[in-house]
Simulated assay, not measured.
Amino acid sequence: MQELKDAFAAYGADYEATMRRFMGSQPMYLRFLDMFFQDDSLQKLGAALDAGDLNAAFEAAHTLKGTSGNMGLAPLYAAVCAIVEPLRTGTARGDYPVLYQVIQAEYQKADAFRHSLKRGDPV
């Protein structure tokens, strides 16, 4: 249990708050975490940004924000929050590609966190 708490802390996530959402069940959390990485919201966000479709980009980012927040992936959640609000207003901005790159990098870190939990390794 302490190793799991340490892994959450090293990743930047709140173990207690996250595990409350999953009734304290690590197996349940890991199942839902795997499902999170099967979702295509990240790819939809990138494709919508490439196409200049800010409405579709907002929808994908908003979904990613909610799911990453529910999964306790705080660093990814924070990165997604930075793009959601400007997209909500439909404002065209030149920094969307940079914000998306930050999200992609945090997504990779979250995936590494997931794999470390499954192996029982520290992050």
Rank of each mutant, 00 (worst) to 15 (best):
M1S: 11
M1E: 12
Q2C: 02
L4D: 12
L4Q: 11
K5P: 14
D6K: 09
D6C: 06
A7P: 10
A7F: 07
F8R: 04
G12Y: 10
A13F: 06
A13M: 05
D14S: 13
Y15V: 11
Y15D: 11
Y15Q: 10
Y15C: 13
E16Y: 10
A17M: 13
A17R: 12
T18G: 10
M19C: 13
R20H: 13
R21W: 14
R21D: 14
M23L: 14
G24R: 06
S25D: 15
S25F: 15
M28E: 03
Y29E: 00
R31E: 15
R31T: 15
R31A: 14
F32E: 11
F32I: 08
D34Y: 10
D34G: 15
F36Q: 02
F36D: 02
F36Y: 08
F37E: 04
Q38V: 06
D40I: 07
D40S: 11
L42H: 05
L42D: 07
Q43A: 14
K44E: 02
K44Y: 08
K44H: 13
A47Q: 12
D50K: 07
D50L: 03
D50I: 03
A51S: 10
G52K: 00
L54V: 02
N55F: 00
F58G: 01
E59Q: 08
E59H: 08
A60T: 01
T63L: 06
T63D: 05
T63W: 01
L64T: 04
G66L: 04
N70K: 00
N70C: 06
M71K: 01
G72D: 03
G72S: 03
A74I: 13
A74K: 15
P75V: 02
P75A: 04
L76E: 01
L76Y: 06
L76K: 07
Y77N: 02
Y77G: 00
Y77K: 03
A79I: 07
A79K: 08
V80P: 04
A82T: 07
I83S: 02
I83K: 00
V84I: 14
E85N: 13
E85M: 13
L87E: 05
L87Q: 06
T89A: 15
G90E: 10
T91L: 13
T91W: 04
T91G: 08
T91K: 11
T91N: 12
A92H: 14
R93Q: 12
G94D: 12
D95P: 02
D95A: 02
Y96M: 01
P97E: 04
P97A: 05
P97S: 09
V98N: 08
V102L: 05
I103W: 02
A105H: 00
E106M: 03
Y107G: 00
Q108R: 07
A110E: 06
F113R: 05
R114A: 08
R114L: 07
R114D: 03
H115S: 11
S116R: 13
S116T: 11
S116I: 07
R119F: 10
R119A: 15
D121M: 13
D121H: 11
